[in-house]
């Protein structure tokens, strides 16, 4: 494997966004790119990352390899990279280590690190293709604000989507709260628009603790997409350039 990223910031942000949710992960490398799928310890949330080969220049992967990496270790090493450094990942066939180099674009500084790999026996889940009943695309900062504000009151949020819009509601010991958003096109700045596409109304309840965690990815993209269908996991997607993405799935809470 040899994969060169123009900006180390992208990998730094991705790892930062997921390291509190999952710890030991296989980075599955093949000629289409680098993928990661891992569930949190409670088996309630799942991270699915895809960094397409087009996000790297150049990208070469001659044989499929799984790089088992501890994200705390990776975070320690990535801290040594500046956001605008050029980052190159390298691994041999059947590797013991993954090699990372950080090149400063404006000086001759080159740093180089090896991280020991681990054997990770990871459950790999088959995620069915789903036609979601509701898809909401909103500013990622807005979604972060909603989850943060409501998590101060309650452990859970009900998300209801109808043709009127989407409503986030919570009930807690001190009282209750809600935030409603309507479909809205911001003509000056499309990134601030709220798009709702609905085939049937949905109402689902989720744990806010996980949603707050997912929002650590907000720095990766101006926009976030929420996909919901009744009685299936929520999909929260942060799109990256070149069709790469960071997705989170969260199992719902269901009434007794």
């Amino acid at each position: 494997l040899e994969a060169r990223l123009e900006q180390a910031a992208m990998l730094k942000r991705v790892v930062d966004a997921i390291k509190d949710l999952v710890q030991d992960c296989n980075f599955d490398c093949n000629d289409s790119g680098i993928a990661l799928q891992a569930m949190d310890n409670s088996h309630v949330a799942l991270v699915s990352m895809m960094l397409k080969s087009e996000s790297f220049s150049p990208f070469r992967c001659d044989r499929n390899i799984a790089l088992g990496i501890n994200l705390t270790s990776l975070t320690k090493v990535l801290r040594a990279a500046q956001g605008d450094d050029i980052l190159t990942l390298k691994a041999e066939d059947a590797p013991d280590v993954v090699n990372l180099t950080f090149e400063s674009p404006e000086s001759d500084r080159l740093s180089e690190y090896d991280i020991k790999l681990m054997d990770i026996d990871q459950e790999h889940l088959g995620i069915p293709d789903t036609e979601y009943a509701a898809t909401i695309t909103l500013p990622s900062s807005e979604f972060s604000r909603i989850t943060r504000d409501l998590s101060a009151l309650s452990e859970s949020v009900a998300i209801e989507c109808t043709k009127e819009g989407v409503k986030f509601t919570c009930t807690g010991d001190i009282g209750n709260g809600s935030v409603s958003l309507r479909q809205h096109t911001n003509v000056e700045n499309d990134a601030k628009s709220v798009d709702i596409s609905l085939t049937e109304p949905v109402a689902l309840t989720f744990s806010l603790k996980y949603l707050v965690n997912f929002c650590k990815a907000a720095g990766l993209s101006d926009r976030v997409r929420l996909c919901l269908s009744n009685e299936v996991p929520l999909l929260v997607e942060y799109g990256l350039s070149n069709n790469s993405y960071l997705r989170f799935y969260l199992a719902p809470k269901i009434g007794d």
């Binding site: 088996h43 309630v44 949330a45 799942l46 088959g126 069915p128 744990s207 799935y249 809470k253 009434g255």
Partner: peptide, 14 residues
């Protein structure tokens, strides 16, 4: 009250 469902209830274990 509601209880938390696990992902394995929805996704296949490969």
């Amino acid at each position: 009250t509601s209880h938390q469902v696990k992902l394995l209830a929805f996704f296949n274990d490969r």
